[in-house]
């Protein structure tokens, strides 16, 4: 029951959907553990991406590094497929001129197999997401 970043692609997680894709800044950059690489949105909001853990996990803390995000909604599901998402968290971010937004969210009831991140509002036409990490535990290796 060790604590680690559940989102990392090197731990088997995957971005299974993203509404924007610039092949130079693909959504995989969000979970590669490197804040220097990022995913960009390419137009109108809302924009979203879905992270699949391929196992049952219990998330205790989320850390999101981004730029120009204004409002973020996070939904979760415990299903085997990315369906039946339930509302979970909604946050308004602060505009951080020239530096990354670094948002730490302590969460309750973090049992899930997928997380869905929806950027509903932004401070500019485009935003970037550099890293999403989730601290927590693996509950079961079957999804």
């Amino acid at each position: 029951m060790r604590q680690f970043d559940l989102c990392l692609s090197s731990e088997g997680s995957e971005v299974v959907l993203a509404t924007s894709s610039d092949e130079k800044h693909p959504p995989e950059n969000i979970i590669d553990g490197n804040p220097e690489t990022f995913w960009t949105t390419t137009g109108m909001f809302p924009q979203e991406f879905i992270i699949c853990f391929h196992k049952h996990v219990k998330v205790e803390k989320l850390i999101i590094q981004s730029y120009l995000v204004r409002t973020l909604k996070i939904e979760k599901t415990k299903s085997k497929e990315p369906v039946d998402f339930e509302r979970w968290i909604e946050r308004d971010f602060v505009h951080t001129e020239g530096q990354l937004q670094n948002e730490e969210i302590l969460v309750h009831d973090g049992y899930c197999t997928y997380l869905r991140f929806i950027i509903t509002k932004a401070f500019d036409h485009f935003i970037s997401v550099h890293c999403v990490s989730a601290e927590g535990l693996v509950v079961s290796n079957h999804s």
Binding site: H25, T42, Y67, G98, D124, F126, H130
Partner: peptide, 17 residues
């Protein structure tokens, strides 16, 4: 113009880290 704006923003995203 919109494409140019996108390029400028992406350049700015690169300088954040």
């Amino acid at each position: 113009q919109f494409h140019q704006l996108y390029r400028e923003r992406v350049d700015a995203f690169h300088t954040l880290v």
